[in-house]
Amino acid sequence: MKHYEVEILDAKTREKLCFLDKVEPHATIAEIKNLFTKTHPQWYPARQSLRLDPKGKSLKDEDVLQKLPVGTTATLYFRDLGAQISWVTVFLTEYAGPLFIYLLFYFRVPFIYGHKYDFTSSRHTVVHLACICHSFHYIKRLLETLFVHRFSHGTMPLRNIFKNCTYYWGFAAWMAYYINHPLYTPPTYGAQQVKLALAIFVICQLGNFSIHMALRDLRPAGSKTRKIPYPTKNPFTWLFLLVSCPNYTYEVGSWIGFAIMTQCLPVALFSLVGFTQMTIWAKGKHRSYLKEFRDYPPLRMPIIPFLL
């Protein structure tokens, strides 16, 4: 059985960083990364991007050496992705923050609204209902991160945790300040508006959870398998008939419901920014589905049925 020789060059300087002799033909890129780490321990596998061309796409960890368009002496180019952190850690951090930050404003801890309001309670029912909904949303997200989601990528750049936390924590503080303010004004149409908004919120939260469970069942634990998601017997998953990412559709719907319930401008802005970002993600995933699966359902749109 022939063996391969693998040289790894710096993608920027073309400097030879490592030479691997007698590499098995069936070795994966993940195994080559581990061998590279032995000579350069500062670059652990998650930091490494190996590619066939200095400006090309990163090879997948599961790619097999003998199936790549290389000879028995293969040249790979290395790029440092920077310090990495696990997706689970990032999600837990960015979701735990809003949960606790919101509660600080809800309980009106000292130095927020003035001494005479310390630890007082709002007289408006919608304020307490909003706290329950907000807390439920982020507790749900935390539990899904721990027990439901299966991540195709193990890590992301460390800098992302600061960007994500600034976004989630900042908006949580902004909306919580106004919703729990002693001078907060309840919704214009009173109980009817709150009940309608609560119904929207609850339905969308159930829908979002149902989609996450359906997506989880598509991917076996520990794998990166991708399949076309289809509706199940659960009615909340029937939205798969019309959109590629109904989890985002339901998520946006939840925040629209919360915005109607609280009639709070920061919540509306958070919903708008979230919708914009999720639309970008949904379009990317939709394109990926179309590219990977020739039999992908043609009627589906990325996030909004028939429109977007």
Score class of each variant (00 low, 15 high):
residue 104 L to E: 08
residue 98 P to G: 07
residue 32 I to W: 02
residue 224 K to H: 04
residue 110 P to G: 15
residue 59 L to P: 09
residue 128 H to A: 10
residue 167 Y to S: 03
residue 210 S to W: 02
residue 93 T to R: 02
residue 98 P to F: 03
residue 194 V to Y: 15
residue 41 P to T: 03
residue 103 L to Q: 11
residue 54 P to E: 15
residue 302 P to W: 12
residue 120 T to I: 13
residue 149 H to V: 04
residue 273 V to E: 11
residue 135 S to F: 00
residue 13 T to P: 07
residue 153 H to D: 08
residue 12 K to A: 13
residue 18 C to W: 05
residue 179 I to D: 15
residue 248 Y to T: 15
residue 189 Y to A: 01
residue 161 I to V: 11
residue 135 S to I: 04
residue 18 C to Q: 07
residue 28 T to F: 01
residue 60 K to W: 15
residue 142 L to P: 06
residue 195 K to T: 10
residue 103 L to D: 00
residue 88 V to I: 11
residue 166 T to L: 00
residue 90 V to T: 15
residue 304 I to C: 13
residue 185 T to I: 13
residue 168 Y to D: 00
residue 237 T to I: 08
residue 12 K to H: 12
residue 15 E to M: 13
residue 255 W to L: 07
residue 294 R to V: 07
residue 216 R to E: 15
residue 224 K to L: 08
residue 290 L to T: 14
residue 106 Y to V: 00
residue 87 W to V: 03
residue 256 I to S: 11
residue 146 L to N: 01
residue 54 P to N: 07
residue 221 A to S: 12
residue 126 V to I: 01
residue 60 K to M: 13
residue 5 E to K: 11
residue 224 K to F: 03
residue 148 V to K: 15
residue 133 C to H: 04
residue 153 H to A: 02
residue 194 V to A: 10
residue 158 L to V: 06
residue 28 T to I: 10
residue 175 M to A: 14
residue 3 H to K: 05
residue 108 R to V: 04
residue 149 H to E: 01
residue 152 S to A: 14
residue 272 L to M: 05
residue 236 F to C: 12
residue 86 S to D: 01
residue 168 Y to C: 02
residue 240 F to H: 15
residue 172 A to G: 04
residue 44 Y to P: 04
residue 92 L to R: 02
residue 273 V to L: 13
residue 119 F to H: 05
residue 218 L to Q: 03
residue 100 F to C: 14
residue 154 G to T: 05
residue 5 E to Y: 12
residue 282 A to G: 07
residue 165 C to G: 12
residue 224 K to T: 05
residue 94 E to Q: 01
residue 298 P to G: 14
residue 302 P to L: 12
residue 29 I to P: 08
residue 111 F to S: 09
residue 91 F to L: 08
residue 93 T to M: 14
residue 271 S to P: 10
residue 10 D to P: 13
residue 191 A to P: 11
residue 229 P to I: 07
residue 163 K to G: 05
residue 93 T to C: 00
residue 124 H to P: 06
residue 231 P to S: 11
residue 176 A to S: 09
residue 276 T to K: 13
residue 165 C to R: 03
residue 94 E to S: 04
residue 290 L to E: 01
residue 23 V to S: 01
residue 248 Y to H: 08
residue 30 A to W: 13
residue 71 G to F: 10
residue 103 L to F: 14
residue 262 T to D: 09
residue 18 C to E: 10
residue 224 K to S: 04
residue 66 Q to D: 00
residue 124 H to Q: 11
residue 184 Y to V: 00
residue 296 Y to G: 06
residue 90 V to G: 10
residue 135 S to R: 02
residue 42 Q to R: 12
residue 4 Y to H: 09
residue 251 E to A: 08
residue 45 P to S: 12
residue 113 Y to H: 08
residue 42 Q to W: 10
residue 73 T to A: 11
residue 30 A to C: 05
residue 33 K to V: 14
residue 64 V to I: 07
residue 152 S to T: 06
residue 177 Y to H: 07
residue 37 T to A: 09
residue 277 Q to Y: 13
residue 192 Q to A: 13
residue 40 H to E: 03
residue 185 T to A: 12
residue 134 H to T: 14
residue 49 S to Y: 03
residue 146 L to D: 02
residue 61 D to V: 10
residue 249 T to H: 15
residue 135 S to N: 02
residue 99 L to Q: 11
residue 308 L to F: 12
residue 110 P to N: 15
residue 6 V to P: 05
residue 254 S to I: 13
residue 297 P to M: 00
residue 20 L to K: 02
residue 266 P to Q: 04
residue 175 M to G: 01
residue 145 T to H: 04
residue 138 Y to T: 14
residue 60 K to T: 03
residue 269 L to Q: 09
residue 179 I to V: 13
residue 249 T to K: 15
residue 109 V to I: 02
residue 25 P to R: 02
residue 187 P to S: 09
residue 99 L to V: 12
residue 299 L to M: 06
residue 271 S to H: 14
residue 4 Y to Q: 13
residue 34 N to D: 09
residue 277 Q to P: 04
residue 236 F to N: 14
residue 238 W to C: 11
residue 78 F to T: 07
residue 186 P to T: 00
residue 230 Y to N: 12
residue 75 T to V: 08
residue 209 F to C: 12
residue 97 G to S: 13
residue 304 I to K: 05
residue 61 D to Q: 04
residue 9 L to T: 01
residue 303 I to S: 07
residue 43 W to C: 12
residue 188 T to D: 14
residue 239 L to H: 08
residue 108 R to W: 12
residue 279 T to N: 06
residue 9 L to D: 13
residue 117 Y to H: 11
residue 86 S to M: 02
residue 209 F to M: 09
residue 236 F to E: 00
residue 223 S to Y: 00
residue 260 I to T: 11
residue 163 K to W: 04
residue 126 V to F: 14
residue 11 A to G: 06
residue 43 W to T: 12
residue 182 P to Y: 06
residue 5 E to N: 01
residue 94 E to G: 02
residue 111 F to V: 12
residue 16 K to H: 13
residue 191 A to I: 03
residue 125 T to A: 07
residue 33 K to R: 09
residue 267 V to Q: 00
residue 133 C to I: 01
residue 36 F to T: 11
residue 132 I to M: 06
residue 303 I to T: 06
residue 59 L to F: 01
residue 44 Y to V: 09
residue 295 D to H: 13
residue 81 L to I: 14
residue 43 W to V: 03
residue 182 P to T: 03
residue 35 L to H: 09
residue 142 L to I: 04
residue 169 W to E: 02
residue 176 A to C: 13
residue 301 M to L: 09
residue 222 G to S: 03
